[in-house]
Simulated scan of single mutants.
Amino acid sequence: MFTAFWVAYASFLLPSAVRAAAQYNMVKEYAGESFFDDWTFYNNADNLTHGNVNFLGNKDAFHDNLAFTNDAGNAVMKVDNTTQLKFGQNRNSVRLSTKDQFTVGSVWVADILHVPYGCSVWSAFWSSAPTWPVGGEIDTFEAVNQDPMGHMGLHTNPGCTHSSNAVQSSTLINSTDCSIDANSNQGCIITNPSPASYGEAFANAGGGVYVTEFAIDGISIWFFNRTTLPSSLQGNVSTIDTATLGIPVANWPADDCAVNEFFQPQEIVFDITLCGDYAGAASVFYQTCTGVCYNDYVLGDPSFYNTAYFEVSYLRVYGEPGELTVIQPSSGVRSVGLGRFATPALVLGSLLALVWAL
Rank of each mutant, 00 (worst) to 15 (best):
N52Q: 13
G153E: 00
N70G: 04
L354H: 00
A308F: 05
L85H: 03
S350C: 04
N236E: 15
Y318D: 05
F270I: 03
V249W: 00
C188Y: 11
D46Y: 15
M1Y: 08
Y42E: 12
N251H: 15
C119L: 05
F41Y: 15
F87I: 05
S106C: 03
Y30M: 01
W132R: 03
G105K: 05
A215Q: 00
L48G: 09
S169N: 11
A182L: 00
S313Y: 03
L299G: 14
D139P: 12
A72G: 08
E320P: 07
S238H: 14
V209W: 03
Q264N: 09
L346S: 15
A282E: 08
A166W: 02
G235K: 05
L348K: 01
R95A: 09
N236Y: 09
N43R: 09
T228D: 07
F2K: 10
L315S: 04
V7A: 07
L354G: 07
G51C: 04
I268H: 06
V121C: 11
S335V: 01
N204Y: 03
V249N: 03
D38H: 13
S128Y: 10
P193S: 02
L299C: 14
F125V: 05
P248T: 02
Y286R: 05
G159N: 04
V312T: 06
L299R: 13
T227H: 10
T242K: 14
L85A: 03
N74T: 10
F224T: 09
V298A: 08
Y198A: 15
Q328H: 14
F12Q: 11
N306I: 00
N92P: 07
E320W: 06
K28G: 01
N47G: 13
G208K: 13
S331D: 14
T156V: 06
F262K: 05
V336H: 06
G199L: 07
G322F: 09
A75C: 07
K78Q: 13
N43Y: 09
E311A: 12
N295R: 11
P321T: 10
D147W: 12
N92Q: 14
N251C: 14
G88F: 14
L351W: 15
G207F: 01
S232W: 09
G280F: 11
V18T: 10
V134Y: 12
D296P: 11
Q146L: 15
P133I: 06
C293A: 14
N44W: 10
F102T: 02
T3H: 15
G276K: 10
F141Q: 01
G135D: 04
A342G: 11
T40I: 12
Y286M: 05
E200W: 08
Q84M: 02
A143R: 11
Y309P: 05
I268Q: 03
A4F: 13
V27Q: 04
N192A: 08
G88E: 15
L348Y: 10
W6T: 10
V7T: 12
E213C: 01
L154R: 00
W126I: 02
Q84A: 00
M1T: 10
E311C: 03
N192T: 13
V336N: 07
F270D: 00
F102Y: 15
F270S: 00
G88P: 11
V347S: 08
Q23R: 13
T83A: 14
D177W: 00
T131Y: 09
P133Y: 02
A143L: 13
C293D: 07
T242Q: 10
E311Y: 04
A281E: 06
A243V: 08
P302M: 09
D64W: 04
F102R: 11
C178T: 04
N192M: 06
